[in-house]
């Protein structure tokens, strides 16, 4: 899995950090998202997909490099 974030879009809501604190962080000075890793380990993939789905500004982009499917239920298509 490869991960990018769009800091211009991010509104600093912190939903990503609450979902996957091992992967996302927020800058001290303005609360904008930063990545702790752009290639999260497999054990964090579900949480990363959740973060991308709940991000209010769609600032998180997940590029699939493996076959782990995101969990079902709610739609994932937009990410």
């Amino acid at each position: 899995m490869k991960l990018t974030v769009d800091q211009d879009k991010c509104c600093g809501a912190g939903a990503c950090v609450l979902s996957a604190p091992e992967v996302f962080d927020q800058r001290e000075e303005d609360g904008i998202v930063t990545l702790l890793t752009s290639e999260p380990a497999a054990e964090h993939h579900v949480a990363v997909h959740e973060a991308a789905a709940v991000c209010p500004t769609a600032a998180i982009r997940v590029t699939e490099t493996d076959r782990i499917a995101p969990p079902g239920r709610s739609r994932q298509a937009r990410h």
């Binding site: 509104c11 600093g12 809501a13 912190g14 939903a15 950090v17 609450l18 579900v46 997909h49 959740e50 789905a53 709940v54 209010p56 500004t57 969990p71 079902g72 239920r73 709610s74 994932q76």
Partner: peptide, 30 residues
């Protein structure tokens, strides 16, 4: 949301809009 009219206490992910969405989405949501 699958089964939108039922409460599923384990629903994940749950991209609900209670805090709004977009550039004005709730600042205090955390």
């Amino acid at each position: 949301f699958t089964g939108a009219d039922a409460m599923d206490l384990a629903r994940t992910p749950n991209p609900h809009l209670a805090f709004g969405v977009g550039p004005h989405s709730c600042l205090g949501q955390a």
